[in-house]
């Protein structure tokens, strides 16, 4: 494992911890999109099916369990926790799941590496992960005033994707036959979706001010 991969994984882990910290300590999920969290739960559930069939490393198994566990517990908190669920911006978080899930599934049926359940679901999880942040970005755009923890959560998620791209560039030059179009293109699309957010995030850091997106 190279340094970009490790940094990417740790940033991903940090993003989830920031989110859980916010929900658990402040007992608030204001500004957090349940839709995005549910999409991530689907992403991890479909991608980590191999948890029971293939053993890669202790690190790999632990991280998979953490991402599965955290995504499902965040969904549980927002839907079921008697205090947290009151802070959920239901009327603002209007993105429809099937607008995202259905096209990703159709695309996975068309573009995959092998036509097996595992490979199609894996491709589906990559396509879905690429666009799962959309409901969250729309919600940020609508609420405009973003609290620090929510801003950091989205920033860390974007940083994780950017670091994965550096990891693929590194692997391409150090490992023979490392060519993965499905992973690369969906990863690139996913990172590009953060470009606008990154721009305003760095602007607000430069001005030492609060993160605010334009209307």
């Amino acid at each position: 494992m190279n340094i970009f991969r490790l940094a990417g994984d740790l940033t991903h882990l940090a993003s989830v911890l920031v989110l859980l910290l916010k929900i658990h300590t402040i007992k608030s999920c204001a500004g957090i999109s349940l839709k995005t969290q549910e999409l991530y739960a689907i992403v991890f559930a479909t991608r980590y099916l191999d948890l029971f069939t293939t053993y890669i490393s202790l690190y790999n198994t632990l991280m998979k369990l953490i991402f599965l566990g955290s995504s499902f517990s965040i969904v549980w908190y927002i839907r079921k926790h008697k205090i947290v669920r009151r802070s959920y911006d239901k009327d603002q978080d209007t993105f429809r799941h099937y607008f995202i899930v259905l096209p990703c599934f159709v695309l996975a049926l068309i573009i995959h590496e092998k036509f097996t359940v595992r490979e199609v679901l894996w491709a589906f999880s990559l396509y879905l992960e690429a666009v799962a942040i959309l409901p969250q970005l729309v919600l940020l755009q609508r609420t405009r005033n973003i609290d620090n923890l929510t801003g950091q959560y989205v920033f860390l998620l974007g940083a994780y994707r950017a670091l994965y791209i550096l990891n693929w560039i590194y692997r391409y030059f150090t490992e023979p036959h490392f060519v993965h179009w499905i992973t690369w293109i969906s990863g690139l699309v996913q990172t590009l979706l953060y470009a606008d957010f990154f721009y305003y995030y760095f602007q607000s850091m430069k001005n030492n001010g609060k993160l605010q997106l334009p209307a």
Binding site: R5, T54, I56, F67, E113, F178, V179, H180
Partner: peptide, 10 residues
Amino acid sequence: ASRDDVKDEL
């Protein structure tokens, strides 16, 4: 290329 080459990634 197949999924197995990147199965170590999350």
